[in-house]
Design a protein around this nucleic acid. Sequence first.
DNA 1: GCAAAAGTGTTCCTTTTACACCCATGC
DNA 2: GCATGGGTGTAAAAGGAACACTTTTGC
Lengths: 228, 228
Amino acid sequence: MSAGKNKINLSVDAVVFGYDKDTGISLTLIRRKNPPFKDAWALPGGLVKYAETLEAAVHRELREETSLEVNYLEQLYTYGHPDRDPRNRVVSVAYYGLIRQSQFQLHADSDASEARWFNIAQLPDLAFDHQKIVDTAILRLKNKITYEPIGFELLDQKFPFIQLLTLYEVIRGKKLDRRNFKKKFLQLGILEELPEKHSSGKGRPGTMYQFKKKAYFDLKEKGMVFEV
Amino acid sequence: MSAGKNKINLSVDAVVFGYDKDTGISLTLIRRKNPPFKDAWALPGGLVKYAETLEAAVHRELREETSLEVNYLEQLYTYGHPDRDPRNRVVSVAYYGLIRQSQFQLHADSDASEARWFNIAQLPDLAFDHQKIVDTAILRLKNKITYEPIGFELLDQKFPFIQLLTLYEVIRGKKLDRRNFKKKFLQLGILEELPEKHSSGKGRPGTMYQFKKKAYFDLKEKGMVFEV
DNA sequence: GCAAAAGTGTTCCTTTTACACCCATGC
DNA sequence: GCATGGGTGTAAAAGGAACACTTTTGC
């Protein structure tokens, strides 16, 4: 603590989004066990070790604090204001990640657990400048989903079309025309229609689809522009 | 050197773009005076001081190493691979900036100077992972200019329309239709036509314009979407 | 047979692209 | 008066938005 007092600390923080067709977009927060901001909710994260990559640090912290394993992870922004941590100087590289929430109900709502999902519309007060980070992440998610097919990271591997539509509606925050959206999306040629049907219990069952990842990357390489 | 050996160093690097209607897009590099990569060209940058913001560090380093003062500065990406610096762990927050090159001919091509403009099409081998940073910055510039009017940061305050067109052609790397481009741009309502004319020596002199910054921010606030 | 949700096609309008002629200036 | 570059408008094509009826299932 005395040696290296004048050296800046480097940390990572992660905004992990999950999606559930019934509850919408959520993100993972952990409850802080120590001061400052003891008992407040915060983003998972922590100091980067000397020899690990930033991405490795994020994965490690997520594993340690939430036992989540994310597939999709992208750097968001680096927050470096001198006063963002009241103890000492901590510069934090923020990442955002996406997971299929259906696979991780673990921390859902047990009061005893330290990690929980929060709907992005009902977040508690956050420690440090984490609200700012979350705001940036949500903005990025909105933008990103229009020109990269990241939505598939949030849905199950196989899904009825209506779920894709609903996901876009939730993230964009407005109703979309079912027919136009489907037309446009199918035209991209990155969805595979499956023989299976999916019934929600009521009404006509919908066709299941899955993302053709390979087709997408092939097309992307040829200069195809994704935009929805 | 022995104390804090296990703490990560934090630096900033800056990709400063300049534009000249005759020579195109350039960026500033400095020649390294010390190992590693002694005598190689590198981006201006250096370690962040304990109590300064990241932006302040960038401005300071630019002042010290190139005597440039940039108005437009934006965070680009943070590079943190453990091996990016052969000496020890240095995580670097990269920024990119824009300036009116016409105001800074200082370091233009004096062989004795340590800072120089290089056309982005003819860059020398760069130290560290700086080529990667530059690639990202160029990509960002191309993207950004289509949905934010950052071009005005590169042009003189008053400019004939043709220069705006040429700037976009250079950055996009392809010819644009003069009439369609002008129509689209003027429709945005963020350009002010000036009474002055500008002659290139030959042909009919062109009308001068200037960017209506206030009008732009007012419109932006009302939700207007800039896209060219 | 009725309620609920999925499937499908056409028209209209807006935006984008393509394109050609006249005008002001310097020499 | 001719070469050079700047200014302007229109028509065709493409893309996006709006919109209604039929089909399949559960009860």
